[in-house]
Computed example of a mutant assay.
Amino acid sequence: MPFLTNKTAETPVDIFYEDYGSGQPVILIHGWPLSHRAWEPQVPDLVNAGYRVITYDRRGFGLSSFPWDGYDYSSLASDLNEIISQLELKDAVIVGFSMGGGEVVRYFTDYNGKNVAKAALISSIIPLVPRKPDNPNGVPEKDLKDIMESLKSDRVGFLKQFHKNFYNFDDNEGERISKAQLHYDWSIASYASPNATIKTAESWGGTDFRPEMKNVTVPTLIVHGTADNIVPIETAGDQATEGIPDNEYHKIDNAPHGLGVTHKKELNKLLLDFLAK
């Protein structure tokens, strides 16, 4: 199994990755609290279209190292930088889903977007999650505190319910995904480091990327579902399109947060059309 080591970290971190195909490199950055396996519906279509597709496990998740600290976005972006540097990638496209949007934006802040030609934010947390006086559509502070308390008291129980909300399962039971898909996601999330699950939640729940959006200076695809119950579209996609200079914004009607599974065909077409431009 392929690993690379981020030796720039205080404690070296081993990052697991998969690398398929050839052509322009596309790096897929998974969301919280999953792993590279979350991109299973996208990888075949991208590889078959002639792209080199790289997925990896965020530190603390999947098969990557489980360090105790280093879950702030600059540390996470340093892992992305090591992938681009060590694999000697040029003209890469970096695609961040949900929490992964933070690595995308922070990479432009910390590394000036080196060797990146395009970016994409899918159901992304960009620019910020919590409700604030100047972000009235964000997630209420009480809800974020409840998430943290649940992760500390009954992590696996919380994750079981979380993935139902991820797909709006109770509203569309059996129509979009199977119960087996829910269990698959739960098993991936449950395997992650409990400590990393909490600390990365603190990062995506507490980082304000609004001042950094201007740093994303390459063509950027923004995709968000209108029925996202995890990251409301009003606080994410609608604001990201106002802050990122060169972007194209697509709303997928009635799509939940996990639209990469429920609306695979729509998302894959948007990605491929954007890559081909």
Rank of each mutant, 00 (worst) to 15 (best):
I147N: 05
L275W: 05
F108Y: 13
L271W: 03
A38N: 07
P136M: 06
L34C: 02
S123G: 15
H224E: 12
P127D: 12
P12L: 03
I94W: 06
L271N: 06
I188A: 00
D19L: 07
V47P: 09
P256R: 09
I188W: 04
A255D: 11
F166I: 09
R59F: 03
E234D: 08
D273W: 04
Q239K: 15
S64C: 00
Y71Q: 01
A255Q: 13
V156P: 08
F274N: 01
D185C: 11
L128Y: 14
I29N: 10
G157C: 06
M99P: 09
H257E: 07
P140F: 01
N115Y: 11
T220Y: 03
F274H: 00
V129S: 09
Q181Y: 10
I54P: 05
E242P: 09
T55S: 00
L271K: 04
I83Y: 03
N112K: 15
K152L: 00
F166W: 14
H224L: 10
N81G: 02
L34N: 02
A9H: 03
L275F: 09
V105M: 15
R59P: 00
Y17E: 03
N215G: 10
Y111K: 09
Q86E: 04
D91P: 10
H36L: 02
G102R: 14
T8R: 01
V26P: 08
D238S: 12
S187L: 13
N215I: 11
A255H: 10
D45P: 06
K264W: 02
E149Q: 04
G70R: 02
I177G: 10
H250Q: 11
A201S: 09
N247V: 12
R37T: 02
P211D: 13
